[in-house]
């Protein structure tokens, strides 16, 4: 419900690392199987709701002389996803959307691509639809036209995948980001540390800003699928406090462990926060060249005819260069 404890987020969308691995492997394998069977990975939903692979079935003995495009491995899929998750943050920032919207959109994106491979559904379009639907869910209405205009995309491309996305999310639309918990903790710290003087309040404010920055990074990791928002927020505060040194965080954490209704002890809580922060540290920055290379592979998997066209074009342009050099002579 609108309380995390009884929410679909709590019941269905906090997953252990093993489950994440299995889901991703499952989606990846399905896409590869489609590639072998139909020669392309992209999936289209038919009017009757069934899925169709637009590629023609390949004969038993395989296409003669034609080589199938090379499929993405799971790690490559994850890298592409991370790239588009960053894009979500950029687009939301460019629109000056409230933080809540990007957190919701990123979680939608992550959840969708647990059930589907990026080879099956175009991650760029899904990303845009994720942002658009989060705006609706968070009661921050932007028309498809305005949105399309802002990102210089056809609004229809954004709308086209709406139902597919809703279904991929299992219609579980209420999600909890760490940002509101974060504000709650700051508010609570003011009371706990009896913050009265301006200087200390100012410090807490800086701590909050720094923690929001950490939370943004957390949202790009699997931590967002593995830990409840309260723990993400605490982890962000803990990490930010290392630099800011605003509060005696350890003391505060002990008090939280004492006050909360759940059974998490101080040590268990500390262990959770550490594993959250490990996720952040293990994240390597997304390398543009890697993305370009994988994206090219992705395009060919989704639509192998592009590969042929590309070859033709290459041949043509070589031909042209030759001719023009001949002309020049």
């Amino acid at each position: 419900m609108a309380d995390f404890q009884t929410s679909s987020h709590h019941d269905r969308w906090i997953l252990n690392p093993q489950a994440l691995v299995e889901k991703r492997r499952g989606s990846n394998q399905r896409a590869i199987a489609a590639l072998k069977k139909y020669g392309a990975t992209r999936v289209e939903v038919q009017a009757d709701g069934s899925l169709a692979y637009p590629g023609a079935p390949i004969a038993e003995d395989g296409p003669v002389g034609e080589k199938l495009p090379e499929p993405l491995v799971v790690d490559e899929e994850i890298l592409i996803q991370r790239f588009y998750e960053q894009k979500i943050q950029q687009v939301c920032a460019a629109f000056s959307f409230p933080h809540k919207i990007q957190a919701t959109a990123i979680l939608y994106f992550k959840r969708f691509f647990l059930n589907w491979s990026v080879m099956e559904h175009d991650p760029k379009q899904i990303m845009l639809t994720c942002i658009y639907i989060s705006c609706k869910v968070e009661e921050f209405h932007v028309s498809a036209e305005e949105f399309g205009k802002g990102i210089q995309q056809d609004p229809q491309a954004v709308l086209k995948n709406e139902l597919c996305l809703l279904q991929g999310l299992n219609f579980d639309l209420i999600v909890y980001g760490p940002y509101r918990s974060l504000e709650g903790f700051i508010f609570d710290m003011e009371n706990f540390f009896h913050a009265k003087d301006e200087a200390f309040l100012e410090k807490l404010k800086d701590l909050k800003e720094a923690a929001i920055f950490v939370a943004d990074k957390l949202m790009l990791t699997d931590a967002a699928l593995q830990f409840p928002p309260g723990q993400l927020a605490l982890a962000a505060l803990q990490d930010a406090n290392l630099e800011e040194k605003a509060v005696d965080f350890d003391r505060y954490l002990r008090s939280i462990a004492d006050r909360q209704h759940e059974k998490l002890s101080y040590l268990e809580l500390l262990e959770c926060l550490n594993s959250v922060l490990e996720k952040v540290k293990s994240v390597r920055p997304v390398n543009e060249d890697d993305v370009k290379r994988i994206d090219r592979k992705l395009k060919y998997c989704r639509n192998p005819s592009l590969q042929d066209e590309n070859k033709k074009r290459e041949r043509k342009s070589k031909h042209k260069t030759k001719r023009s050099s001949q002309d020049a002579e």
């Binding site: 309380d3 404890q5 709650g184 409840p228 928002p229 309260g230 939280i256 909360q260």
Partner: peptide
């Protein structure tokens, strides 16, 4: 951002 804060004990129920 609205100033509306939920009662803060609500925050702790989100911990787990």
């Amino acid at each position: 951002r609205g100033p509306s804060q939920p009662p803060h004990q609500q925050q702790f129920r989100r911990l787990n």
